Computed example of a mutant assay.
Amino acid sequence: MVQVGDVIVSFDVFREKFFCDLDACKGACCIEGDAGAPVELEEVEKLEEVLPVIWDDLSPEARKVIDKQGVVYTDQEGDLVTSIVNGKDCVFTCYDEKGACYCAIEKAFREGRCHFYKPVSCHLYPVRIGNCGMYKALNYHRWDVCKAAVALGRQKNMPVYRFLKEPLIRKFGEDWYAELELVAEELKKQKMI
């Protein structure tokens, strides 16, 4: 682990390679698992605001879940997460003609229909934010559904932190990311990564 500003970053964020391969995984990270995506408290209002924009893009089952319990719930570990359908699919998932899953919020954002990209935890995946005392901690999350992304990342020699440049800047700012890059260069010089 290394400290960058007020964030503790796992060496795996620098060492591991990753590049999403949606053709291979079909968006499995949005539909697998035992809980929804982690949501920050300030994102709940944004999720509710975007709902009318994406409502028609959501499945009837997702709309029922949202009507019943809302866009988020508290999971077994006490974390705020997106609501899910049938114990797995995020309520914001949609499918394209090839059967690949995608985020209705991100689609609306890319089409200029809303100003919220998607929950930052989704944007940051495969990195998860945790707490380490008074610091935030960035940890690389390994998951079998991302095997193709790991293989493609190795092929492209794409470290996790570079793959996640945009969401890391979104979360921590450009100055923080510039410091992260300096730390990466120093770790390379010291042959630690």
Rank of each mutant, 00 (worst) to 15 (best):
A100C: 10
M158G: 07
M192E: 09
M158R: 12
K64P: 05
F92T: 01
V183H: 10
Y161H: 07
R15N: 09
M134C: 09
Y117I: 08
D23A: 12
D6Y: 10
L164E: 04
A178E: 14
C94Q: 14
A37I: 15
F11V: 08
V53N: 02
K156R: 14
G112F: 11
Y95H: 13
A35W: 03
Q69A: 07
K17V: 02
V39N: 02
T93R: 02
L47H: 02
A62G: 09
V72M: 11
E61K: 15
V85A: 09
L41G: 02
W176E: 10
Y140A: 09
V183W: 08
C90S: 03
F172T: 09
A104H: 04
A148V: 04
L41D: 14
L152E: 14
F14K: 05
C146N: 11
K68T: 15
D75V: 11
D144Y: 11
K46D: 06
V160Y: 10
L22H: 14
K147I: 09
K189D: 00
E61S: 14
V4D: 14
I8C: 14
L180G: 09
K165I: 03
A37V: 15
D144V: 13
K118F: 01
L187R: 07
I84M: 03
P119F: 03
I54W: 03
D6A: 11
R162M: 15
K171D: 06
D89Y: 08
V72F: 08
C94T: 12
G5Q: 12
I169Y: 07
C30H: 01
C103S: 03
V160E: 07
K118H: 06
N157L: 12
H115N: 13
T74G: 02
R63W: 11
Y161I: 00
F116W: 03
A24H: 08
C146F: 12
V9S: 09
E179R: 12
E16I: 00
V120W: 05
